[in-house]
Simulated scan of single mutants.
Amino acid sequence: MKVGSLQLVVAVLALATALTVAYDPAILQDFCVAVKDRTSPDSVFVNGIACKNPSLATIDDFTHSGLNVPRDTNNKIGANLTVVDTTVIPGINTLGINLVRIDLAANGGLNPPHEHPRASEILIVVEGTLYAGFVATNPEHRLFAKVLGPGDVIVFPVGLIHFQYNIGKTPGLAFAALGSQNPGIMSIGNAMFGAQPPIMGEMLAKAFQLDKKVVAGLQSKTWINPEGDN
């Protein structure tokens, strides 16, 4: 094997190795309760977030109340997401998990097409009738979708575009668990037409086979994030 080819193989193997470990690392202690004050003498900096001294941890660091309360869905997309992360339950830190409550308005509440670059997701429907699914990658862009009711579960593989749409006449409610403390979220419409500074309209028109005026109109809209009250 030539030297150049060997170097290429080594480089590819190194990249593959890096990608296989690009997930939340396994913890080496029972827990690492997050704290906001990184300067506190009773904290230690771990995995991007400071943790309190384990001897100071309490049960309140691992519990939260209020996920039974419906959120306001009176916005443009008829949806509101409540994310349970380290700001809500500090004890989640370093555990590689995340929880989301998804409230969807009746007759069209939508959690728009989006993807999570760092986590797969499992979602259970509690109320409503949801049309939910995901799209596979090139070249087929195959759609996997189904109408789900209370008690039904669906899985969204990591990095694939997915959505939930309430086609029922009553409010929808679902809970989703994700396999990362910080899964990240990339909403497709927001990213393409709401990016700041704006992406070149001519390029978007060609990419989406749209008229430039249509693209300009899309870019002029206010793209909202379903997380929180919008």
Rank of each mutant, 00 (worst) to 15 (best):
K213C: 01
P90Q: 14
S180M: 07
V84Y: 09
A105W: 09
L28T: 15
R142M: 00
A50D: 13
V84P: 08
G108I: 11
Q196L: 09
V33R: 04
N98C: 08
I167N: 14
I199R: 09
S55A: 15
T129I: 14
G109P: 08
M203N: 07
L148N: 00
G91A: 05
K36C: 08
S5K: 13
K2M: 11
H64W: 15
A191Q: 11
A34D: 03
A57Y: 07
T86E: 15
T58R: 13
G78H: 01
T137H: 06
P157W: 00
Y23L: 05
T58I: 03
V33W: 03
F62K: 03
K146S: 00
H141G: 08
V214L: 10
A191I: 04
V83I: 15
G179A: 05
A191H: 15
A136W: 03
C51D: 07
N98S: 09
R101F: 06
P197L: 00
G109H: 06
P70R: 14
R38V: 13
Q164H: 09
V46Y: 07
G96H: 00
T58E: 08
G179S: 07
P197C: 03
Y165P: 07
R118Q: 04
Y165R: 14
D72M: 05
M192A: 15
L143D: 05
N190R: 13
A191R: 08
G228M: 00
I49P: 06
R101P: 07
P113N: 09
Q181V: 02
L123A: 13
T87Q: 13
V135R: 04
